[in-house]
Design a protein around this nucleic acid. Structure first.
Length: 966
RNA sequence: GGGCGGUUAGCUCAGCUGGCUAGAGCGCGUCUUUGACGUAGACGAGGUCACAGGUUCAACUCCUGUAUCGCCCACCA
């Protein structure tokens, strides 16, 4: 096989992926259910044990025609026990799940980062010999997909209300089935080494099964309750959201002051009471009414005011008011507590109550309480047992209001209410304010707090258990501080609304009794038969709840369902080794997986959590369609190659940080791939022309060791040392999830060390076995990060076998440390020669001047090497007195044999050099002059400083001699 | 209001538990057809590590405060 002349990733990437997949190398070596005792880790999945008939008609397998149906089924062997064998099994596996991308979407840059991170880990541990299982998934993306589909329906002139829920489910299913596939192809293009036949779709039967089992357990354990609570409701999408899905935005608004008339009037007017009783504090008393002309207010003092003025941003909800609240400590209103007021525009009267919620500093200090349409008011209402009167319907129009307002939209109703209040003289002021408003994160519609019967999970115990395990350090976080953030979140977690009013999701398996006379029967029963609208049990009829689960309720089972965890069997892949995902879903997903994992399995679902931050554009700004700064990962893959993208996006990135990303880093990655490609071409050409046997024979005469290679010349020992350091570094970086650092050290080792020094030296002394071995090692070490190019090279090399993807992580190389250190000296010499030559006037200096040395064994022994690396025409031993230009190297008598004229021109440079070394020397001397440093600093540092001083002094001396010679 | 993070070269970022002349990539300048690579090689310029205190023999690193940018949570009648 011959190497293509140039590095063209597009020419081989897809073929290579196909070859990997065909060879099945992404499958875990150990089957998830090693109960067969074959002892050879053979795969059980060819003979699946019985699969249940799909009881749920809704749960068709979207990937049903694929090999997914062959997914292994658990084999019951009785109680699950942890044996020593289990433990050793678990330690020989590596498992990780892909946060499932939207089944019918395209990958975005965040997915690109996720794959780069997760696949690097997977490939690294696969090379390290662990049975690695990278489990892919696809998300039905309940709401996301639903929004897309509903838009589609609208385009066709239909609405969701024309169809039954089952109909809609089936339609969306087909819609997704048609669209799906893109994201899987894109994952392959990114090199994700996923075990594809284990792909789990969030609506797969086993997922629904597991979710129902958990729900049933929760129901029986009393964790599930049906409650009438306020939920964030999108009037456009007609569904409720969890708190976490709501987007708050600061917006301008108006705060209106509205007068509510007292029914049983106070004996004195509000204002006169103040003046009569608190005369000494008159000047400090704030006026009850605000935002109006001072004089107008004064006028009101003379008249008995029989009203209280409330401040509100939502006048239209006044029909739902259940009370007016004032702060119990607010002196202005103390006497009014317990009195009643007439609700404007209606005949109703409501009480004035005392509640901390009312802030005396804000508005008038009196606030209307509308329990059915405001979250705070709901809580106030609960404290005071107030009725919840719903006046806004789910479609955003008014209900339960006087006839003239009935059916108006909230917007129109507000206008009319304000107009009517004004006419009645009850509107007392308005003020422009900024307040945050809840929006639907998808369509931007203002969310309406809506009173609804929903299913809730009582999270108290779940959260408490999770906190205990977190505080017990059972999960390691990267970055570390996120654990604290998570615990803090869990401590304040409110009950979780799991009902959604969209058809695209997992049906809630609850049925409501239809016959109110069957008093002995419970109102709600659990039943898995959600394919039926109506069921009958013990002669009583029940109808299905039409809601579906919040997607996070099922997603929280992800590690459990992906690894096929069961109660009965030990599963070496659960808990997952690591959960890698975006820091933005720490609460929504990670927190819930931990709670659910503990609830279902009693174990944390993963040992470590790595959270990545946002990928920002090159200027550090968030990417968004509206800004037009979105970078499409597939576009970069096409232009620069998959490896270049992966290397580029990992570069300079650290856990949890939002970081800028630009094409530059991808270009740098591409360049490394190209470099590696050409290194390999050169090595291969050397291997091709030099018969290995002859060389080995020659070497083994000198050294009887049976090693595959021998190190002999200095650069060889040196590169062995450097590669060993690199391997150590990569391993420790991967253990600590320091991806960028791992890539960095590989980059440096391959380019700055291997190519620039070792390969260059090998153009002179060829050690073919070592060239082969070192190249193999570097390819393997880089493979986790750049899988395609390393595999492509591996396949092109004449002496390698199999796939690099399943190669063995390299052992350390043997080397002679003294020889390695000597090469370091040679490098220093070579660099000094180069620097000096460049600084000399004129061009092409390297070829002009010979190098002279005196009494220097390293130079003497390596004349040819130094000559090759510096390109000087000759290296001679100094005969007679020193001449030419002395190199500024301590402990080396080296001269560039240049004419006096050139030396003279170099005088300034030399003087400056002496000064600069002098400054360094001064600093060192200053340090030594400090007795505290000498006494307190570690001994080795003091000694190091002393040595440096000696070195610098000697250097300065010699430079001065040189200068004096000029 | 509570919490978290950033501020290091022109740009984007490393620098872990305090001890190098503070690093990388890209960009920039000069030079180079050398057994692969110009997507390259050699050499170089460029930094008061946001600011102010403190701890220490020693601070980019630890502590306190300030400024500034950003994120998350809560509240906003």
């Amino acid at each position: 096989m011959t190497f293509a002349k140039s590095y063209e990733p597009g020419a081989f990437e897809s073929d290579i992926y196909a070859a990997w997949e065909a060879a099945g190398i992404f499958d875990p070596k150990i089957t998830p259910f090693p109960v067969d005792d074959n002892g050879d880790g053979t795969d059980d999945r060819e003979e699946p044990v019985s699969t249940k008939m799909p009881e749920n008609a809704l749960s068709r397998n979207i990937f049903g025609d694929g090999p997914n149906t062959e997914r292994p089924s658990p084999v019951t062997t009785g109680a699950r026990e942890r044996s020593e064998k289990d433990a050793s099994l678990a330690s020989s596996t590596f498992s990780i799940v892909l946060p499932p991308p939207n089944a019918n979407g395209n990958l975005h840059i965040g997915h690109g980062l996720t794959v780069a991170l997760e696949d690097s880990l997977t490939r690294f541990y696969r090379l390290k010999g662990l049975s690695s299982w990278f489990i892919p998934g696809a998300d039905h993306a309940g709401f996301e997909t639903w929004v897309v589909y509903e838009r589609e329906l609208e385009k066709q002139g239909h609405t969701r209300f024309e169809y039954s829920r089952d109909d809609l489910y089936a339609r969306v299913w087909d819609f997704v089935a048609k669209q799906r596939g893109n994201m899987e192809l894109q994952l392959r293009a990114l090199g994700a080494s996923c075990s594809w036949h284990d792909l789990t779709f969030t609506l797969d039967e086993n997922v629904i099964d597991r979710v129902y089992t958990t729900f049933e357990k929760m129901w029986n354990d009393g964790y599930i309750y049906r409650g009438e609570k306020l939920v964030n409701f999108c009037p456009k999408h007609q569904t409720a959201f969890a708190d976490i899905e709501v987007e708050h935005q600061d917006e301008p608004g108006t705060l209106w002051d509205i007068a509510y008339e007292l029914v049983d009037a106070a004996s004195k007017s509000v204002h006169s009471r103040h003046f009569a009783t608190d005369e000494e504090r008159v000047s400090e008393v704030p006026p009850v009414t605000t935002g109006r002309d001072e004089r107008a207010e004064n006028e009101t003092f003379s008249m008995p005011i029989q009203e209280i003025i409330v401040s509100t941003t939502r006048p239209e909800t006044l029909f739902g008011d259940a009370a007016v609240a004032v702060n119990p400590d607010d002196a202005r209103y103390k006497d009014l507590i317990g009195k009643r007021v007439k609700l404007p525009l209606t005949d109703r009267t409501i009480p004035i109550i005392a509640d901390e919620h009312a802030d005396p500093e804000y508005g008038t200090g009196a606030v209307k309480i509308t329990p059915a349409h405001d979250f705070d008011d709901f809580e106030v209402g609960e404290r005071h047992n107030l009725p919840r009167l719903q006046v806004i319907a789910e479609d955003g129009t008014m209900i339960n209001v006087p006839e003239e307002y009935l059916g108006l939209t909230t917007k129109d109703c507000r206008k009319k209410v304000l107009k009517d209040l004004k006419e009645q003289g009850l509107l007392r002021g308005e003020k422009k304010i900024t307040h945050s408003v809840a929006h639907c994160y998808k369509c931007g519609t203002v969310l309406e707090p809506m009173l609804k019967d929903q299913w809730f999970v009582d999270v108290e115990k779940l959260a408490k258990t999770a906190i205990e395990h977190l505080e017990n350090n059972e999960i390691k976080f990267h970055p570390e501080n996120k654990k604290k953030v998570l615990i803090n979140y869990l401590k304040n977690l409110k009950d979780w609304n799991i009902s959604r009013q969209i058809p695209w999701g997992i049906a809630i398996p609850m049925f409501r009794k239809t016959d109110p006379h069957a008093t002995d029967e419970p109102d709600w029963i659990f039943d898995r038969r959600t394919n039926l609208k109506e069921i009958e049990k013990a002669g009583v009829k029940y109808v299905r709840d039409e809601d579906t689960f919040d997607t996070w309720f099922s997603s929280s089972h992800w590690p459990i369902v992906c690894t096929d965890w069961t109660e009965e069997n030990f599963n070496p892949y659960y808990p997952l080794n690591v959960m890698e995902t975006g820091a933005d879903i720490l609460f929504a997903w990670v927190a819930r997986m931990i709670m659910m994992g503990l609830y279902v399995t009693g174990e944390v679902p993963f040992r470590e959590v790595y959270l990545h931050g946002l990928v920002l554009d090159e200027h550090g700004k968030k990417m968004s369609k509206s800004k037009g700064n979105v970078i499409n990962p597939m576009d970069l893959v096409t232009r620069f190659g998959s490896d270049a993208f992966r290397l580029g996006i990992l570069r300079g990135r650290s856990a949890g940080m939002n970081q800028a990303f630009s094409e530059n880093s991808v270009i740098a990655g591409r360049n490394l791939c190209n470099k590696l490609w050409n290194i390999s071409r050169l090595v291969e050409s050397i291997v091709d022309e030099e018969p290995e046997d002859a060389l080995l024979a020659e070497r083994s005469e000198k050294d009887a060791s049976p090693a595959l290679y021998t190190t002999d010349d200095m650069g060889e020992d040196w590169i062995c040392r450097e590669i060993n350091t690199c391997l150590d570094q990569v391993e420790s970086d991967m253990k600590d999830y320091r991806f960028a650092e791992a890539v960095e050290i590989l980059y440096q080792t391959i380019w700055d060390k291997y190519a620039d020094w070792f390969i260059e030296s090998q153009k002179l002394y060829k050690n073919t076995p070592l060239l082969k071995r070192t190249l193999e090692i570097l390819l393997i070490a880089l493979h986790p990060f750049a899988p395609f190019v390393t595999e492509a090279i591996w396949q092109n090399l004449s002496w390698t076998n199999g796939f690099i993807a399943t190669a063995k992580w390299p052992e350390k190389l043997k080397f002679d440390p003294i020889s390695a250190e000597n090469f370091e000296t040679i490098r220093t010499i070579v660099q000094e020669v180069r620097t000096t030559l460049q600084a000399l006037p004129g061009t092409n200096n390297a070829k002009k001047y010979p190098l002279l040395y005196d009494n220097d064994s390293i130079v003497n022994d390596n004349q040819l090497l130094i000559k090759t690396l510096t390109k000087v025409p000759k290296i001679n031993s100094l005969d007679g007195a020193p001449r030419g230009l002395r190199l500024a190297l301590a402990n080396h008598e080296l001269y560039l044999d240049v004419p006096e004229q050139v030396v003279n021109n170099y005088k300034d440079t030399l003087t400056e050099r002496i000064l600069s070394v002098g400054r360094e020397l001064d600093a060192l001397n200053l340090r030594m002059a400090n007795p505290n440093y000498v006494n307190k600093a570690p001994e080795h540092l003091v000694k190091e400083t002393q040595d440096q001083i000696k070195e610098k002094e000697a250097l300065i001396d010699r430079l001065k001699v040189q200068l004096s010679l000029i």
